[in-house]
Design a protein around this nucleic acid. Structure first.
Lengths: 260, 260
DNA sequence: CTCCTCTACTCGTACATACATGTACTAGCT
DNA sequence: AGCTAGTACATGTATGTACGAGTAGAGGAG
């Protein structure tokens, strides 16, 4: 084993599998094991420490849960390499960007040299979930247009988004088409007499549901950002709610807060 | 067993332990198992499914990683109950709040009826980490005042914070005292001739480090918010960097974005 | 009635073993 | 040269066993 690992501490009462996890974690954090590099195989670790396989697997499980490693069946366990990170600025929906003719996601991704794609676009008209109806100020029987889609960078999925717009506004417009045209739905809303005033964005962090792991191809132990953004027109009316789930290791969110 | 669980599917190729995890997850999501309620013990699940204990433990491990359950040694495995959530508004550092004479954390917590505490306050003066020095626009040899502390609500820790201020500004002032006085360090900065203009806040989501699990008493499978906030004075100078780690299940962050 | 011990039950750690399944490389055949 | 089967090695799934350690309640001693 090229990697030098300490032996077990015979006096501590810290369980063996946690000690082994500590050793490997230290090695990763000190860059003695670099991203993409292979962690010693279970068999080698068993030999090195003189313990049972279960003990080694428990140790490796910890690192995986912490998001430090990924196991690949038949190949080995590898130190995770951090993917390209996108920084989302708080002015990303400002009108001056919209007027460039590109939707926010496309513009930002090309800005950092990535290749953006949009995927599995689905459009429907239904009754909204209760929280969405409340945010949009809709009544019992009001319907919404639902636009759901998935965003990818260089072919790798990073974000799913579902937009809800009052059907009374969006029905029959280009917003109900798969391709919403230059500047995206916000540009269309403004053209249609709903100039935007501001957005409220709620940010949560949590572990992903099973479907989200699949849709975003998340490695085990990766949390997600859950954003709910409400767009308000200048007349104070809420015109869109966008529910977004993002792979947390692909994003840094950046906001500006007033001090006055 | 009061809880009704389906049997195993003999034809699918989905592994047994994942099937069992699915059954329990469904039960939790459909509220057949409610928050705080006890999940059937390993022994009962072994008997019900007729499988080995390891298989059951693998299944339970999944739920724990997903943050759906917590195991308590000697008592059982319980469905996690969601704690009280604090909403952090984007105007939480606005001057009008500062002028009420309370620091942001105290004011907000009392606002929702919780009992705020601040804990393990440590103050020192050292050379800053490279990224902090860069954000503060400091040179090689410039020192910073470091204020680290932990916040608790009703005795339960929810957030750790470390503030860095240029020593040239903060040294010898009340900011270097454990009790910074009414309105906290931002009020002191403004009094001392550094009126604040705005804050930049970077938000990341990730799994906690080991020390963070301890400091915040995090349940396994709980991600954290990692915030880095920089305070800018009206003259454009960065006067504080605050590095905050928050238990993700205790917070919803809320921001207002401009549309224009 | 109070305190203590015992016991049953819970999850935690660790061992040993077996076979399934995916990957990568090699030797050998065509 | 190109394909194929075999082999070694990797992780995945599952079985069993044993003992440690924390919790909670029952029951007996004082």
């Amino acid at each position: 084993m090229t990697l030098a690992l300490p032996g077990l501490d015979p006096v501590t009462d810290r369980p063996v599998f946690k000690q082994i996890a500590d050793h490997l974690r230290d090695a990763i954090e000190q860059s003695r094991l670099e991203p993409g590099e292979k962690v010693p195989s279970e068999a080698k670790l068993m030999a090195h420490y003189g313990v049972a396989r279960m003990t080694i697997r428990n140790a490796l499980q910890i690192l995986q849960t912490e998001g430090l490693t990924v196991a690949e069946h038949g190949r080995g366990v590898f130190v995770r390499s951090r993917p390209q990170v996108r920084r989302l600025a708080s002015d990303r929906f400002a009108r001056r960007h919209r007027e460039q003719g590109k939707a926010a996601f496309i513009a930002e991704t090309e800005g950092v040299g990535g290749k953006p794609t949009v995927d599995s676009i689905q459009i429907s008209e239904t009754e909204p979930p209760a929280d969405v109806a409340q945010r949009l100020g809709l009544g019992e029987r009001d319907k919404v247009l639902v636009r759901s889609r998935r965003y990818l960078i260089n072919g790798h999925p990073v974000e799913t988004a579902v937009s809800y717009l009052p059907a009374s506004i969006a029905r029959g417009t280009r917003i109900a088409e798969p391709d919403t045209g230059p500047g995206g739905i916000y540009a269309r809303l403004e053209e249609m007499g709903h100039p935007l005033d501001h957005f409220d964005e709620e940010v949560r962090s949590r572990m992903p549901m099973r479907e989200e792991v699949k849709a975003l191809k998340l490695a085990p132990g990766t949390p997600v950002f859950h954003l709910v953004r409400t767009a308000y027109a200048e007349d104070g009316r809420a015109v869109e709610v966008c529910d977004t789930v993002m792979s947390s290791d692909a994003y840094v969110l950046s906001y500006q807060l007033p001090a006055q």
